[in-house]
Write a protein that binds this DNA or RNA. Structure first.
Lengths: 231, 231
DNA sequence: TATTTCTAAACTGTATTCAATTTTGGAGAG
DNA sequence: CTCTCCAAAATTGAATACAGTTTAGAAATA
């Protein structure tokens, strides 16, 4: 969220990036309290830049803060994921509407090419890789809005639901690319309502679906992705 | 954005609130560089909590940061305001759609009452007060979505455009309440499309309109709101 | 055994100090 | 007059020190 500087990587930025990755992937567990002294030592810095990084991540919703108790990893709550999905759907639908008006044929061809390149041999890709491709597709669409504030919000939403999307992708590995193609076709046809409907359907999740996937997410976090590897 | 704690007000929170108000209102001027030493002395704290507060405000988009140069007030750019308005319109339209489905009649009656109470004698109110009422109306609508993430994004957007809205309100003091009533009527009638259309019209601004109001905004910032009071 | 109390250790909040970097302003040259 | 260079002052980035608060675990009590 805070742009990377042109200058030598600062301590704050390095810490921010590192902890962000850990928070996104729930390698820091939901609700886990961060010990500043340990973390600073482990990351080779003092508490001063560490706290600066933690403040940024808190403002972005990846961590939470309690005065006197310190910083914590955000929880993994179905209701929160549901709300983020609803927000995401709202913005992605608005994006395809704007894309139908603003995207050039050349730009859309490039997205078509991207879908072709990433459409093959999906069975062998990890869900992380699939989500990565999925994100790139959506980022392309959002870029057609020429609205950097929308892109910024969506980026933050995506960071906060990324872990959840890895889980979700395992149950939908084959559908999403098909859906992407249909969405893109509707945009190319400048069929606003169809594109909006397809995107909304592509993204919307019911709360019970989310709850089920969150349960699976907890299993991954606490048992590891290789099975019952308790740690 | 970061919730106020139940505990004694911390130095960071106090500094955050104070600087936030200054940034929202452009009492810190667009692009102005913040001097940490001076500011810390002026606010009666050390640089450590000050920098923590500044990091939060930067992540929220009210300030900007350059490594080696420090923290700055965000600029007042028409394009950015335009994008924030577009984002706002997207979310407010989605909100009235959800409100048509979710809001109880009792809740809507309360908003009606609010509009009645705040509908009289608008000529004597400051544009700040009018924007305040305007915000309350919109917050009520957004609360009907039961989506705290949408509310959160809208809150941030509103903070970042608040100054602009004061300027804009001076040119529209009589229209907005009328528009609010129409929007509310459409919601009460559960007429989704009409409510959405009215809200969209209520919020959308063309870039040229925004540019003109931003110019006026600069005049206020640099000449003061009492006329040519150069400071 | 479970619960409560208490104390020391650990941690958080912040002030101070120090090192590195940027800015400012004066002097000199064209 | 403008531009460049340079040194000193000022500022930013971060480490360390200190004070206040919270936590963990042991001891006492029911």
């Amino acid at each position: 969220m805070i742009p990377t500087e042109d200058k030598p990587s600062s301590s704050v930025a390095r810490l921010y990036d590192h902890i962000k990755d850990q928070a996104i992937s729930f390698r820091i567990k939901p609700g886990e309290r961060l010990n500043e002294v340990d973390l600073a030592k482990k990351l080779g810095a003092s508490r001063t830049p560490l706290r600066e990084a933690l403040n940024r991540l808190t403002a972005e919703g990846l961590l939470t803060f309690e005065r006197g108790r310190g910083f914590f990893c955000r929880e993994l709550k179905p209701r929160e994921i549901f709300e983020l999905y609803q927000l995401r759907a709202t913005l992605e639908v608005a994006s395809v509407r704007l894309a139908c008006e603003s995207a050039t044929d050349k730009e859309l061809d490039e997205v078509k090419d991207f879908l072709l390149e990433t459409g093959t041999d999906r069975g062998s890709l990890s869900s992380e890789q699939l989500v990565e491709f999925d994100e790139i597709f959506h980022e392309r669409i959002v870029s057609f809005t020429r609205n950097s504030e929308m892109a910024r919000v969506l980026k933050n939403v995506n960071e906060r639901i990324k872990f959840f999307r890895w889980v979700d992708m395992d149950n939908r590995r084959n559908e999403t690319q098909h859906e992407h193609r249909n969405i893109l076709q509707a945009i190319c046809a400048r069929d606003v309502d169809k594109a909006a409907e397809l995107m909304n359907r592509h993204i919307t999740r019911r709360l019970d679906q989310i709850t089920a996937a969150v349960k699976e997410g907890y299993a991954r976090i606490y048992m590891g992705s290789e099975g019952l590897d308790l740690d």
